[in-house]
Design a protein around this nucleic acid. Structure first.
Lengths: 150, 150
DNA sequence: CGTGAAATTCTTAGGGA
DNA sequence: TCCCTAAGAATTTCACG
């Protein structure tokens, strides 16, 4: 599905989505027009889901992050916790997992008090118990996906 | 530190870093030139760390993700696990945490066999024990950081 | 997939609140 | 200091070969 050229485009665009077509073109050894067409196809076909700016959490007042495992209090109820929690903007990610808990969230807040409030909101919104693991230090995150054919 | 205009720029650029200055300019109600200067300052001052393309993991052969908690086998040894593991491209994030384990990693691989190999590599490279939690389904991830002043 | 021309965007310099 | 306008350079876009 991905030939080497597409893989090269994806690798480059993962590291710098704001590179010009000319720069991409140079990296992958194809004309600007061809790169543009491939990039458009990769976007439209859903291989490229979107683009993000990576912000420094400290600089934007989100210095505290944590993992929150959650488990429904009443297993007999329909479980749609992910949708019930989606409106909480502090939640950056939500996965269902194999393990003791049902889901794990990754959250970012400014202060311990914000975390306390968020945990309360989560419990109320989704009728779940929580188990929170505070992040002490982040060594790296948001590293680009490494592609096989790169 | 961030006035409302900077916050608006950050919000927009988080959602679509490839928007043109004219589009940003429209969103924040400032001239193109002023927006460009602010964006440059936000980049240069480190508030904006970088940009990424978000790829569909399935489409690029990384359908299996997992959290791996790790703990040094010998607590008396100097602990530099994050650096020792940095060369493993399957590791997307590495945090130190408050809890039973010392660190938690988020990793992406293609198959269970790849995960097995990665866990072996991690144990060998950093002399750690591991506890792996497989992700069954990802409901959302990479949601942009929500800014206070937005 | 490459070429070329038109439309759009980026960049920089200069002036004003 | 911050913002706007304006002109030239660079890039994107798209039809055609």
């Amino acid at each position: 599905m991905d030939d080497p050229v597409d893989a090269a485009i994806l690798t480059e665009v993962s590291r710098d989505p704001r590179a010009t077509l000319a720069q991409l073109s140079e990296s992958v050894g194809l004309g600007v027009s061809a790169v543009q067409a491939r990039l458009r196809r990769l976007e439209h076909s859903g291989v490229i889901v979107g683009y993000r700016a990576i912000l420094d959490p400290e600089a934007v007042g989100k210095s505290l992050s944590a993992f929150i495992e959650i488990t429904p209090l009443d297993p007999s109820q329909p479980d749609n916790a992910p949708e019930l929690l989606e409106h909480l903007a502090e939640i950056e990610a939500c996965h269902s997992i194999a393990g003791d808990a049902s889901y794990i969230l990754f959250v970012r807040v400014g202060t311990p008090r914000d975390l306390e409030a968020l945990i309360r909101d989560i419990r109320l919104a989704a009728s779940v118990s929580t188990r929170t693991t505070v992040v002490l230090q982040t060594f790296y995150e948001n590293r680009p996906i490494s592609l096989p054919g790169a």
